[in-house]
Design a protein around this nucleic acid. Sequence first.
DNA 1: CTGAAAGCGCTTACAG
DNA 2: CTGAAAGCGCTTACAG
Lengths: 333, 333
Amino acid sequence: MNPTIQDVARLANVSIATVSRVLNDQPGYSEKTKQKVLKIIEELGYQPNAVARGLVNQKTGTIGVLFPSVSGLLSAEILHGIETKAHEHRYSVIVCNTAENREKTIKYLQVLREKRVDGLIFVSEAVTEEYYEIFCRMDIPVVLVSTQSYQYPLPFVKVDDRNGAYAATKHLIDKGHAAIGMIAGSEDDPIAGWPRIEGYRHAMREAGLSLEETLVQSRESFHYHEGRRGFQVLMKDHPELTAIFAASDELALGAISAAYEASITIPEDVSIIGYDNLILAEMSVPPLTTIAQPFKRMGSKAVRMMLDLINGKEAESTILPHELVIRDSVKSR
Amino acid sequence: MNPTIQDVARLANVSIATVSRVLNDQPGYSEKTKQKVLKIIEELGYQPNAVARGLVNQKTGTIGVLFPSVSGLLSAEILHGIETKAHEHRYSVIVCNTAENREKTIKYLQVLREKRVDGLIFVSEAVTEEYYEIFCRMDIPVVLVSTQSYQYPLPFVKVDDRNGAYAATKHLIDKGHAAIGMIAGSEDDPIAGWPRIEGYRHAMREAGLSLEETLVQSRESFHYHEGRRGFQVLMKDHPELTAIFAASDELALGAISAAYEASITIPEDVSIIGYDNLILAEMSVPPLTTIAQPFKRMGSKAVRMMLDLINGKEAESTILPHELVIRDSVKSR
DNA sequence: CTGAAAGCGCTTACAG
DNA sequence: CTGAAAGCGCTTACAG
């Protein structure tokens, strides 16, 4: 159906070797030959078969990206960064939705291995020993995004969660708040869980404020409904609170919604600061003050590291800066 | 690096043809041979090279998906549906972010053609003559999602926008509203623009209500900020309005935010109904009543159609049902 | 039941 | 400057 290099060679009266050379900008043919070949290619609308190329070159120009969830806003923004940068360098990206499920992840890894992707980007998930062993067997570069591994030497790009959480809490303190609670992720989560709790505690301690345990409501996930529940529990235990740091924007929106139902006004009664700066932070009522993570940049940076790795260079793990985005959900006291 | 079929054959003392047969569950070997081969495969951790397979079979088990934007919630949910269903059938998906840009789209199409994807899913965008010609040249199945073509015979899966908009408006009318405005997309948009306006007008006409032109604020896009602006203009021109149909959830959230700033209470002063049912509809304050589009189902249905097409069967265009989701942004009068 | 061989569409030494 | 040939890792008639 599609014309092949054979067709081009025949019509141009040259060998396929010559066609291949002009295709790849290699030396070894006269200008005249080049023009002849180019003309035929044009006429035929010939496009080289990347599958055949992949087979001989042993690289496919494809990278696999594994997400715990593709429908989340966070993944979507990271994917956007990855996809854009990859395409700039003529790489394609295959998306995989692991759903944080071991079997699915392994299945995906197997498919990606069969497809001979040139590299793997692993997003927002912990690297288990099992995964790591598969990475090794695949023998291709792996870059971590928005996660890191303490046990395995895998390069990563992320924000410093501890610092980000510190900045959020500090902002609340600077605004005159003293009774500050936190709605957090799981304490067992070594990436987005306890580091953010640590950051909060650090700021509280530094300011000489209460470190009472019940001030942080540790939830199972970072989702909206947990934010609602977290807010309710927190306000029941600590009606004196004037400010809350929610460890994700979704948690913050949940808190805002629960506040609304309880006739607590944000930010008049209670100030709330989020974490992430997803687009929905802007759409919130009131617009959410939050710590921004540069998701797109994280994605493109990961691709740049991946390209270095593929080309045999080193890639250094990178901490990208977070940023305080002030909107209307935090009020001075 | 990775073991090949040659390695397996050598160690199992059989020919590569035999290995290939047991790999593909074809007849033609004794149970004993099979076990021997399987054992070696296991020991070696052998995994067939999908690139080589793709070259001989002339199919890659990969489909390309083109989105106008990968970072949007809507795309993310459709992608989720596509990805899940594709993976169930051992297909991989390559994502492409066209940014609604002609050059980028053509570049992507070229890459996908070189990579010899087995099919194309084209999401939420109009099919131009130029694109259609490329589709034809690629000679692979194309399925449209959340869009359709009036000029070209391309199968699609979508919701009936006219009916959905009608249902939204009707709901407002049923709740006792008569002064109803609309914040719409572009009138030039033949997919999500005028059909929704038509649906609104149909319901208004049927109920004997005003069809005044200024009652529909047609905006450039379906984004949040347009919703804010749309609301402001609408309420200035028509302070008598008690209800508004926003043609997307983002527009609705923009309207709610603008209302909040103008001290207009939702739904007490003005009821608002959205369209899409993105997760943020649930997170809105107040939670947004809206028309749900089954995005995940649209994605998986598209893949199912794609598989039929790839296997030489027919695929019928499908209209999936919308659904009214009642939350708190609409109040009876 | 099994294997030798051709072929998928390319790239790349090698020889001239 | 140019081409014949081997090879990438498979599948599939074909012959036995």
